[in-house]
Every structure is written in structure tokens, then in C-alpha cells.
């Protein structure tokens, strides 16, 4: 059995990279991929933690939920991206500053 610590370290690193992508990249599609990576990091943690669990499989079930939620998220996000692109003509987050006060 692989130590849970290792899974957690991998998850943490993946999460860090995903977060960095979300924070740094300008293209919305990259941000979306970063979110997928973050979700995957969470999944790795869950699966790693439920290695010894042969009865309830809670971690695996949670991961399954995460996967489904990720799929939903991707669908909605892409629909929004398409609308965004239609309206704003760009997928660059630097150009989308409508939330700014002035």
C-alpha cells in the first residue's frame, strides 16, 4: 500500500499547479483546465485516503461525485465561454474587466 502521505503530496503539488494556472493564465480555457486539475488533486486525495477502506468506499464515491460535478462544471463553463466569446469577442481575462468599478 502506498503511503497516504505520498498521495497527499502529489495532490498538493497538483493543486498548487492548478491554482497557479487559474491565477496566472489569461486565456479562459487555460483557467478551465486549471480548475480541472484542482478537482483532480482533490480526487487524488480522496482516493488515496480511502485505500484501506474495503467496505464503505467513501473516498471513491466522493471522487465519483467530484468527477460528475467536474463534467457539469465543464459543460456550463464552456457554454458560458461561448456566450462570452460571442459578446466580448475575446477569451482573454485581461480584457474582461466589467466587474471593475470604473
Amino acid at each position: 500500500m502506498i503511503p497516504i502521505t505520498l498521495y497527499f503530496i502529489v495532490g498538493a503539488v497538483l493543486f498548487a499547479i492548478g491554482t497557479t494556472i487559474v491565477l496566472v493564465r489569461r486565456n479562459v480555457l487555460f483557467v478551465l483546465m486549471g480548475i480541472e486539475l484542482i478537482l483532480n488533486a482533490a480526487s487524488i486525495n480522496f482516493v488515496g485516503a480511502s485505500q484501506g477502506d474495503y467496505i464503505k468506499l467513501s473516498g471513491q464515491m466522493m471522487t465519483l461525485l467530484i468527477i460528475v460535478i467536474a463534467a457539469c462544471e465543464a459543460v456550463v463553463a464552456l457554454a458560458i465561454i461561448m456566450v462570452l466569446f460571442k459578446k466580448a469577442g475575446s477569451v482573454d481575462l485581461m480584457e474582461l474587466k466589467k466587474l471593475k468599478e470604473f
Binding site: 487559474v22 481575462l93 466589467k98 466587474l99 471593475k100 468599478e101
Partner: peptide, 17 residues
């Protein structure tokens, strides 16, 4: 302080994080 907030999603996310 406002100059920190540039109306970008990412800056909001970073603050949250």
C-alpha cells in the same frame, strides 16, 4: 486600496485563496 482590485476574476480568486 481600490487600485488593487482591477475587475479581474483572478484577482478576486487570489484574495479568496
Amino acid at each position: 486600496f481600490r487600485s488593487l482590485i482591477q475587475g479581474q476574476v483572478q484577482s478576486y480568486i487570489s484574495t479568496t485563496l
